[in-house]
């Protein structure tokens, strides 16, 4: 169970760094809030329109926040060559992938609670009577985003990488999470939580595929 132990150590290390630096709290959360305000302004003050689009805007904010969170998580590895230290450790490199995914997923979940609160306030979204469907959609969607981000965030640490590379690669790959997350959220918030099973299933499939693919493929991304 070395993989598990090393993944936990990785995740604990990343979370400790995040707690010390408070990047998610001090930069990503305000960014997500700004996004929501800008979305609201761009759509105008019509209340029904805002209510209908709220789940989509919510997930867009989460998607962009996850891009920033992964840029940050890998920046900490790149600052002083720490990634090379991980590469040279005689460990299963999948632990880096899993640990980083877990740490960022935890940060994103905390962030989502704040973002949902904001959306409820700003767009008058009612959370509806299906809290488990809503929670399930966010937990499953976050795991999927974390898997994609942890897998490809390492590419952005390449010396020749450009800022746009990471979102260019990750956002199209993550479209199923966006679509399924938005649909499940709008079903849950409009009292049709019972119909969201298919979407949650899709999220489970996405999570499994990307966690498995990442575990297999990540070592190839890390090695020189």
């Amino acid at each position: 169970m070395n993989l598990l132990r090393q993944s936990v150590a990785m995740a604990a290390k990343d979370l400790r760094i995040e707690l010390r630096g408070r990047y998610a709290l001090s930069a990503i959360l305000p960014f997500a809030g700004t996004l929501l305000i800008v979305f609201g302004l761009s759509l105008g003050p019509g209340r029904t329109l805002l209510q209908e689009t709220a789940p989509g805007l919510l997930w867009l904010a989460v998607l962009f926040a996850s891009v920033l969170a992964f840029r940050r998580a890998y920046e900490a590895e790149g600052e002083d060559g720490a990634l090379e230290g991980l590469l040279l450790a005689p460990m299963d490199k999948a632990a880096v992938f899993l640990g980083k995914a877990a740490a960022v997923a935890a940060q994103l979940l905390a962030l989502e609670v704040a973002v949902i609160t904001l959306v409820v306030g700003l767009f008058d979204l009612s959370l509806g009577g299906a809290p488990f469907v809503l929670a399930g959609a966010f937990v499953l969607g976050t795991v999927g985003l974390a898997a994609v981000g942890s897998l490809f965030g390492v590419l952005a640490e390449s010396p020749r990488a450009r800022e746009a590379i990471f979102p260019l690669l990750v956002l199209p790959l993550a479209t199923p999470v966006l679509v399924a997350g938005v649909k499940a959220t709008s079903l849950a918030t409009t009292g049709r939580g019972g119909q969201a099973g298919g979407w949650l299933g899709l999220l489970v499939a996405f999570d499994l595929v990307f966690l498995a693919a990442g575990t297999l493929v990540y070592p190839y991304l890390l090695e020189d």
């Binding site: 090393q6 150590a9 400790r16 900490a76 060559g81 450790a89």
Partner: peptide
């Protein structure tokens, strides 16, 4: 190496304990 591979936001002790876990 010529890069120290340290995490800025961790203490020296935490950095080395992490290395111990990896190895």
């Amino acid at each position: 190496g010529h890069r120290t591979r340290l995490y800025e936001d961790l203490t020296a002790r935490e950095n080395l304990r992490f290395v111990c876990t990896l190895y």
